[in-house]
Design a protein around this nucleic acid. Structure first.
Lengths: 338, 338
DNA sequence: TTGAAAGCGCTAACAT
DNA sequence: ATGTTAGCGCTTTCAA
């Protein structure tokens, strides 16, 4: 870094420019920020000079003066299991894209279950202006913490607490619609396999499923419902029971569960869609290219990230933004429910 | 943020502490940093007081004074296709873990193919002290840029240029070994399907495959080699040709290609391992739980991230570190090559 | 061992 | 329209 700091093109400061141009720091600052009274003439001159000598403002210094960091923390679960889902990654891409288009950067913070120390670090060290939580739990210590200290944040997900600025795909509606569509295809004995109920999204998807049945006056058959299946073994057992109980269709809460279900059904020589229909509440490349291809719900994760970031920044800038926002979805009917 | 800044617990500065304790700023600073001559007594006193009032130094201010940011940029490809692989995510987790254990934070930077503008931004805006590139291309503009301006960076991957600090799994060796093992199982007509040759890793894996054959005096059969298969269609075509040409075994360069191969073989009613053996040079949950389970190479991505981060920080601190580091691997033989 | 003072690069009242 | 000055919170010579 020595070599870098000594590098010619980098030591240009607002001071130097002021000297070289015979103005004061203030004038240069104003020319750059565009704020304050300044003649168009000098402004042009200054900006051109900045351009020529490749001046780049030191964001750190600016941050110190304005108590801003121009950084936002994106909090991902450190849980490696969960990271097999591309959701967080895609969402992060969206967040980064939006942030960088507004001059912000994203600091990633990983969070071990229930441990907010990493979040505290970036917050207390003044490394970020706001926080985005990429997952919401039913009982969420991160939400509690940020709320308590009054730090600006947004959650991707759903919170009962309407004081929490939040954005999410409309899981309930989406799952209700897909369920309804399957009922319309004359399926009656509908099974459901769901994941970790601590995640708000699990709750919402199951709720959507239930509403879809209710809407069509179909009674929930608890012999076909397996929630909180957090391990492969649990999913396998669920599949066995479900097949035993003569389900016509299995709805999987997400693509990971679905891929496990498919493996198990393959083992059991159950043919899809002949013997059993399958649908998933979450899409992935694998489910698309599986044979037969699997009916799913499609969400735009990247857009979710973009919007979450935008909401956060807008609120930071004092614009008033909806506290709760839902994004759309697509139902994709494929061969597995033919 | 108004509310947050006004928040009582946050306005404690080194100045205030100095006042309250009747010392000067300098003394407090020294007590905290541990540098400079200071009596153990006052040091204890100061530290205790800091503890009590929950003082947290302002890293931004410190950064301004020391021209450091305590941030490192992690550059991921923005390519959404690529992000279906958990590699980058896991690697990022490792990087974050290490960084945070040393008081650094990670700024994620996404990079569209060939476009270094986002990297330039964080570098020129002084937002980071160093850069880690999570993927290396054969012709890599990011590497060229960072090298040219003399900015500290590390690549995860392999560069011909030995001036580039680099760390990688030992792909060549790993692929050579797996290939050799398969030859030892009497496979002779070995097919290979590889991805984008612009990625260094693709080159290395193919090289390992070749060396594995050479080592066993087996001649490469170009009718069975399909490189640069960047689309699903290309993979499918490759599989058709390979089956036509009576291969005994297909080696897939990574798990994504492998999953496409499996789908295609399933369509073609080719049974594994009866009709054809399959192996992949990259593991994933899906390949583990596929039926039959797939023989693969296993790399510790998180560890790769950790080490990359450590190398970067060590070098930043002036310690001298190996310029080139290789990490191990595991060969996992499963049913697909039985 | 401790303190005073200058400075990191920028912003923002408050003059002029 | 431009300049002066005083910070932002911390580090670091240089003196005492």
């Amino acid at each position: 870094m020595e070599s870098y700091n000594n590098n010619a093109h980098r030591k240009i400061t607002i001071d130097k420019i002021a000297q070289n141009l015979g103005y004061s720091k203030t004038t240069i600052s104003r020319a750059i920020s565009g704020k304050g009274r300044i003649s168009q003439d000098t402004r042009k001159k200054v900006l051109q000079y900045c351009e020529e000598c490749g001046y780049k403002p030191n964001i750190i210094a600016r941050g110190l003066a304005k108590s801003k960091t121009y950084n936002i923390a994106a909090v991902l679960p450190a849980d490696p299991e969960l990271n097999e889902i591309p959701f967080f990654q895609n969402c992060l891409l969206g967040i980064c894209e939006m942030a960088s288009s507004i001059g912000y950067d994203i600091i990633v913070v990983t969070m071990e279950a229930g441990n907010i120390s990493r979040i505290r670090n970036v917050v207390e060290n003044h490394k970020v202006d706001a926080v985005i939580l990429l997952r919401t739990l039913v009982q969420d210590v991160a939400v509690d913490y940020l709320q308590k200290i009054g730090f600006p944040f947004t959650v991707i997900g759903n919170s009962e607490n309407l004081d929490v600025p939040q954005i999410d795909n409309h899981h309930v509606e989406a799952c209700r619609e897909l369920t309804s569509l399957l009922v319309a295809k004359k399926m009656r004995r509908m099974a459901f396999i769901g994941g970790n109920l601590e995640h708000v999204v699990s709750q919402k998807r199951f709720q959507g499923f239930q509403e879809g049945l209710t809407l069509n006056q179909i009674k929930l058959n608890w012999d076909l419902i397996y929630l909180n299946c957090t391990t492969k073994a649990m999913v396998y057992t669920a599949v066995e029971k479900i097949v035993e109980n003569n389900a016509e269709c299995i709805i999987c809460m997400d693509d990971k569960i679905c891929s496990q279900v498919l493996v198990k059904l393959n083992d059991m020589r159950v043919m899809i869609p002949r013997d059993l229909k399958i649908a998933s509440f979450y899409d992935s490349l694998f489910l698309q290219s599986y044979h037969p291809s699997i009916t799913t719900l499609k969400f735009d994760e990247k857009e979710l990230g973009r919007m979450a970031c935008k909401m956060t920044l807008d609120r930071l800038n004092g614009e008033d933004v909806a506290q709760k926002l839902y994004l759309g979805y697509d139902v994709v009917l494929r061969s597995s429910t033919k």
